[in-house]
Design a protein around this nucleic acid. Sequence first.
DNA 1: CTGCATCCGGCGCGATACTG
DNA 2: CAGTATCGCGCCGGATGCAG
Lengths: 132, 132
Amino acid sequence: MDEWIDGRMELMLGAKDIDSCPVRDVLSRVSGKWSTLLLIALSNGPRRFSELKRFAPDISQRMLTKSLTELRRDGYISRKVYPTQPPQVEYALTDEGSSFLEAWQGVVVWAKENRERVHAARRRFDAETGDL
Amino acid sequence: MDEWIDGRMELMLGAKDIDSCPVRDVLSRVSGKWSTLLLIALSNGPRRFSELKRFAPDISQRMLTKSLTELRRDGYISRKVYPTQPPQVEYALTDEGSSFLEAWQGVVVWAKENRERVHAARRRFDAETGDL
DNA sequence: CTGCATCCGGCGCGATACTG
DNA sequence: CAGTATCGCGCCGGATGCAG
């Protein structure tokens, strides 16, 4: 492998082999369809299960539970059960979760600012390749 | 929907409904298994198809072509064909591509710094839930 | 060398029904 | 209200073979 790769990989990924790449390792868990959305939903304070469900009306109960469990497993959110009747469960962002959300902001901002450019590129590409 | 949602969603996503969410819209294209890795590979200058193949030995030709095409469609990279025999194709990062990589850096850095914390959280979670 | 077509397994995700 | 279990679909991604 060339030298430029080592330097760049070390800088960007921290490892050359993809299996031990911390980026993929960590980010694979928050790349789900709902994960980051739920983190955002919790960014203004703790929310209950049903509140989160209402927040994302098009999420299935299955995926809500699943996503919350994964996020909890990786330490992004906490879960507190109140032994009431009916039961009540409150989810909250951990420090780790807020920290991640902060880092994520840069990408979010970029995506918002460059959305139209990306769309334009897509249209251009499709037009060029469509009629050849 | 409560008010906190509107404010936060507007801040983070730019849209309440998930289908018109610019973040998902833009990032779904770079969330592939190889996309960001290829962008990083190109961050030090243009590379040929075979160079990229050597860069990520475990990528299949199919996925290399596919990923490159998608990245090109969204305007992150450019493609230049040299009419030699055998043919030679050179891929390069566009301004849009470099711009994205810059924004992406924050997340990469975070992932590297917090990898161990995430792993620890996972171990803890598995231990707690495994023997109950 | 570069790229496309085909087949195929895994899994992310949704729909639905059921439990404490 | 919060969560689990089952089923099924679609898509990502790997393996292989063919073509310019």
